[in-house]
Design a protein around this nucleic acid. Sequence first.
DNA 1: CATAGAATCGGACACTTGTCCAAATTTTAT
DNA 2: ATAAAATTTGGACAAGTGTCCGATTCTATG
Lengths: 204, 204
Amino acid sequence: MSTVAPDKLQARADRKTRKRQKKKDRIARSAMQALQELGYANTSLRDIAARADLSLGMLHYYFEDRTQLILHCVSLYKAAFISGLEEALSDASGREPVINALANALATSIIEDASTHRLWYDIRGQAMFDPAFRPVVADIEASLMAVIETAAEKTGSARPGVGELGYALIDGVFRYQMQNQVTGTPRNHESLANEMRSVLETLF
Amino acid sequence: MSTVAPDKLQARADRKTRKRQKKKDRIARSAMQALQELGYANTSLRDIAARADLSLGMLHYYFEDRTQLILHCVSLYKAAFISGLEEALSDASGREPVINALANALATSIIEDASTHRLWYDIRGQAMFDPAFRPVVADIEASLMAVIETAAEKTGSARPGVGELGYALIDGVFRYQMQNQVTGTPRNHESLANEMRSVLETLF
DNA sequence: CATAGAATCGGACACTTGTCCAAATTTTAT
DNA sequence: ATAAAATTTGGACAAGTGTCCGATTCTATG
């Protein structure tokens, strides 16, 4: 029947699915624009399609439904933010340098990606009501705790549970900084980093 | 024309508006049930009407629109939660008692009113996208910072900005505790209070 | 008791939503 | 070049939304 070897067929199918993945990523990145601006509750598929210059049917062709599309967007957030933190941390060693690296990376992200984080907090809140979002949220939070944990180890202040508690504390400050950045009182990098540094000093 | 004295008329009008306020409160308290369960994005006026045994027109008769109704609900949250904290704090004096009172009050509220706080965090998140919610949110947050501030004074550890930073830190832990309570791993009062106490010890 | 005004109801209204599909177009494989 | 498959389109569709209003019932006032 088939005129080509099975492994050829396999490779071909793989190429297809990889290409499809890339396309999904591109669509999701476009969708992010609308989601970041309008928020989960106020963004319709038509908003996304319009801002991304895509037809409505396309979204359904690449994503099963609205939830799957948003979930994909959140995964992209995770990849970008977490790997940025890990990189910043990997370059540092010694207590003060590690604290500085973390504080600086967080402050930079507040200034550059405030509206991305705003969307993240929106989705995390939705997960409190819609269980469909919980696995992705739990996954991201676990990664963030792991980042805190390695930072704690690098500063020689690793205690049991420091990842979990540290995440909650840092997140509280980080979210509040984001809120001020978005709703009225933006601060500069130095001010944000200083505040975060003082928190990390008492944590580690 | 009028056969009664003007102050009589005034008193009558006042009684009317007071009665109307009470009714609005009662409706809002009923609406809370639906909102707490379904969240801001997934609660329609029909959900509210059904669960509160009210007609759809009633909601429009007492509240200008959906936003006003939800805003009223959030105000009720503020009144209940903040006054509870203030009361708990007013009974205590001396460093350890104050820290204990605050930690206990917060832990109790996590256990008893987890889904109310879940709604609060939902609304606070909405405020990041819809400016209509920001004044109420800012008002509540200011009250919470004031509570932290007085607690700091009572423990003799008042520094400039302790209310703001303290709020961000405590809120981070409080929200995370709420999340665990709601999505899977509920803890008992002692465990919650202990964690919060250790945070307050380092803050104050 | 009569009656004006408030309170309540149930449904109409215009609009938006997510989902889906048949047809048209483009890409790929033979 | 031709057939087959993948992609893209534009719109249809039903369900759900907030808002609003005429008709009805209740309540208090004279």
